[in-house]
Write a protein that binds this DNA or RNA. Structure first.
Length: 273
DNA sequence: CAATGATCCTGTCCGC
DNA sequence: TGCGGACAGGATCATT
């Protein structure tokens, strides 16, 4: 399940591997995976990468020709690099081909991932509204407070909303709330300013650690060299039996997703029902 | 505007 | 051994 650290890891691998080589073609194998905007022209390729960036869980590849690729791995997407062109791989939904025949396979069993190719000016049409980046210095408790003021949903669910903070997914939200010592079921509007400060602090801390470890390989996340990340060894509650303090980790469902938390460290209040 | 539920998909795992 | 069903879940869309 690629979240911000996994996307950053893949993007780093993609740009490093590509280097100065031009992209000469992009091929789609599965209807719906490769999306071509009306502004995309054949003259967009070949082109080298001018700049690449990550926005939330989206990879943005700016081409020197003035066009742009948006890559979203969703849940099971992978980019796998190969020196030579080969026949279509299992679950290969698209591929990006470089000028000397090297390719990136876009492997995505569940087919939710997308590659959009568009003119640079069309980017806003294909990128959804996203909240601030976790490492953006403008992200402060005072910034978040009004966004949560009328949200009665559990803080955990609101943090998964990409319009609030961009890039968090189920794994890291669980880890952040554990480190912050906050019960994931607490209504978002009731989280205090000091608690928001803790959330922001631990969000940056967890994400930075995970990026340094090459991401988390739960199920099928792989780096571009098809190696696993290592942050799964450092998870404190997600899919864990016990938290680092030795308390039993509980699992519950919230809005269809598994939440892992420690009822002791995250001070679960007794509630009816 | 907020919240909810359905939807998109297939590999994996569990119980019988 | 095989089968049905639950589960995994990011983002979007329709509905209340």
């Amino acid at each position: 399940m690629p979240e911000l650290p996994e996307v950053q890891t893949v993007l780093n691998g993609f740009t490093t591997r590509t280097g100065q080589r031009k992209i000469i073609a992009i091929t789609g194998f599965y209807p719906g995976t490769l999306i071509t905007s009306s502004g995309w022209k054949d003259s967009a390729l070949p082109a080298a990468i001018a700049r690449s960036e990550r926005r939330g869980k989206y990879m943005l590849i700016h081409l020197e020709s003035g066009y742009c690729l948006i890559i979203h791995l969703r849940m099971t997407g992978k980019l796998v690099y190969a020196e030579q062109t080969t026949e279509e791989l299992k679950h290969e939904r698209a591929r990006i081909i470089l000028e000397d025949g090297a390719i990136f396979h876009f492997i995505d069993p569940r087919t939710f991932g997308k590659i959009v190719r568009c003119a640079a000016g069309e980017l806003p049409n294909y990128l959804p509204q996203l909240g601030l980046e976790p490492f953006d210095q403008s992200l402060t408790p005072e910034h978040l407070a009004p966004l949560l003021a009328r949200r009665k949903m559990p803080i955990k669910n609101v943090l998964l909303d990409q319009k609030v903070i961009a890039g968090l997914g189920n794994i890291y939200v669980c880890e952040v709330l554990y480190r912050a010592g906050i019960d994931p079921e607490r209504p978002a509007s009731e989280i205090s300013i000091p608690e928001l400060a803790k959330i922001i602090h631990h969000t940056r801390e967890v994400l930075a650690e995970a990026i340094a470890k090459g991401g988390t390989s739960i199920s099928d996340f792989r780096r571009i060299d098809d190696k696993t990340g290592e942050f799964q060894e450092f998870l404190r509650v997600y899919q864990q039996k016990q938290c680092p303090c030795g308390h039993e980790v509980q699992r519950e469902k919230s809005a269809g997703r598994s939440t892992y938390f420690c009822p002791v460290c995250q001070k679960r209040a007794k509630r009816k029902h």
